[in-house]
Design a protein around this nucleic acid. Sequence first.
DNA 1: TCTCCGCCCTGACGCCGCGTCAGGGTCAAG
DNA 2: CTTGACCCTGACGCGGCGTCAGGGCGGAGA
Lengths: 259, 259
Amino acid sequence: MDDESAEDLTVGRVARLAGVTVRTLHHYDRIGLVRPSGRTSAGYRVYGADDLERLRWVLVYRELGFPLDEVRLLVDDPDVDTVGHLRRQRDLLIERGERLVAMVAAIDRHLEARAMGMRLTPEEQLEVFGTDKVGGEWADEAERRWGETDAYQESQRRAAAYTKDDWARLKAEGDTALRAWRDALLAGLPADGPEAMALAEEHRQHITRWFYDCGYDIHVGLAEMYLADERFTQVYEDVAPGLAQYVHDAILANAVSHI
Amino acid sequence: MDDESAEDLTVGRVARLAGVTVRTLHHYDRIGLVRPSGRTSAGYRVYGADDLERLRWVLVYRELGFPLDEVRLLVDDPDVDTVGHLRRQRDLLIERGERLVAMVAAIDRHLEARAMGMRLTPEEQLEVFGTDKVGGEWADEAERRWGETDAYQESQRRAAAYTKDDWARLKAEGDTALRAWRDALLAGLPADGPEAMALAEEHRQHITRWFYDCGYDIHVGLAEMYLADERFTQVYEDVAPGLAQYVHDAILANAVSHI
DNA sequence: TCTCCGCCCTGACGCCGCGTCAGGGTCAAG
DNA sequence: CTTGACCCTGACGCGGCGTCAGGGCGGAGA
């Protein structure tokens, strides 16, 4: 048995093995990232075991989001702090994940704001997406500039994907619900009582009907937001003091009852 | 008061407001994605409220990972189901988040595997990252080819970023800990007793020392993985039956005691 | 009124990580 | 000796801008 035969890995084979294209291997060869340890007399690339090993690491780091230059550093220098790099990359991924979560929350807020017929200011709409640069000048200036112009409100209205009828019904439903909430609160009905929980359930279905599939977990998330985000708190508090908390508690109670 | 003055948003201002560069706005103008609704006599771009609105949406969709061509479709067509898009995109984000979580878990496994002195096969190392293509031929062929060669094992060993001494100490610590776990289990010490919890705490600090800052939450995550991932389960079960569960329970008890 | 600085314009090239031809050589089977 | 599947190099393209270069506005101060 000659070990030689094990060495005749051509680009095509390696490409299939590693799940990349031949072009990619050519590229990595050219930029010196993964070079085949040999060539046949005809000039064919011949990859050895070490080359594969190296390629594997390259692909791992690449998948982790390192640019190829940094990948090179990582695989070239064995003294480099690999574990440290992985740790940092891990942090980076988690950070990205948190950003994603924040964006999802922003979308939820956006949708929910529409459900309630609220107008977000551009600043508010941009806040999660933009960098921190957005805050200052925008808050000071844009709010003042665009906040209350008719054109702005008009564009806001047009931005919605609903027909005017839809919008009107949506708004009406929301207002009705809001009054029902107020009545329940003022009547002294407990937030974890059947009436309030029924309102919560209705609220959940309202969102599901008009916006997105709102499960109990998401609903609870919204409830938390109602307390955490003062823009939403305000909407409820304007109707009746303590209503935000009341709605929150009712949603929680309703969710718990459905576990 | 002339509303005209409110309209004089130049590129620079818009750029700062939206948290993008002027170049980006130029680009969007050129490709017709966001065009300023007017120009001054000198040719300066003038953005109006509608333009900002449009830009906002573009940035949102861009952040959501749509290529600009698709962004164009989304913002151009008012009949498009905006809410539907947001819903789908929301799902997409959550999916991406899950992938991130999977990658983080993979890194953890990677680090943890090193902590335990395990050799992952290339296939195992690639499994989370690679596409599904990787599985088949790789598992069938490469494993057989490279799996147990000396060169492979050697390169694996070299791949670690530690000196030989480090590696030896690391391994020794791991082995010592493993024996201590076994002894505790065989002695009938309860997993939520002080001895087992002390071992869990030592384990946590072992990881922190050698790899990454392992808080109690992360530690619990690892414990779950020990049960969920059969490669790790096996390492413990090979030492003593029931040890994986035992270690898991001890880590949990220890974490709870530190809340 | 002139000047200066900061903003604006267009045009063009650069970058990364390859995809995708084009034009040609090689190798094993039939 | 052909055929077809592989291999080679070289070159251009793409997306989403960054980054000059070379020049025109606009308003504040001397």
